[in-house]
Amino acid sequence: MTGLLPAVLACALAYAGMAALCFAMGRHFEQATGRRSVPPRLRRALRVAGAVLLGASLQVSLDGWGAGVGWVAWLGFLTVGALLTTGLWAAWPRLAAGAAAVCAASGLLALIPWLR
């Protein structure tokens, strides 16, 4: 059986990636920080980080389920990650950003032995 671990990992990475993309948007940056505009360099860094995290999520998914099913699963993880981001950001934006940082860090750490 494909274990629970790749699902949790892919989901955490997808959430972190979506949260990074969300954080890079002016409206949501303001919700979390109170500041009006995202500094351009931070914006670019967040977008790159988001893309990398989503890519890592795809990698976990393809590794866990193979080339066909992996893509389908990844779309599912993207949806769950984005819904989580939207819901958490609306209620507790700072907590959501913190959780995303934790997810990103632990997800990438977990990925190191995964890739081997």
Binding site: M1, T2, L4, P6, A7, W65, V69, V72, A73, G76, F77, T79, V80, L83
Partner: peptide, 14 residues
């Protein structure tokens, strides 16, 4: 029909 239990949960949530 694929992906096992985690896929079923993804389908349930979606």
């Amino acid at each position: 029909g694929f992906g096992g239990v985690s896929m079923k949960w993804l389908y349930f949530l979606c």
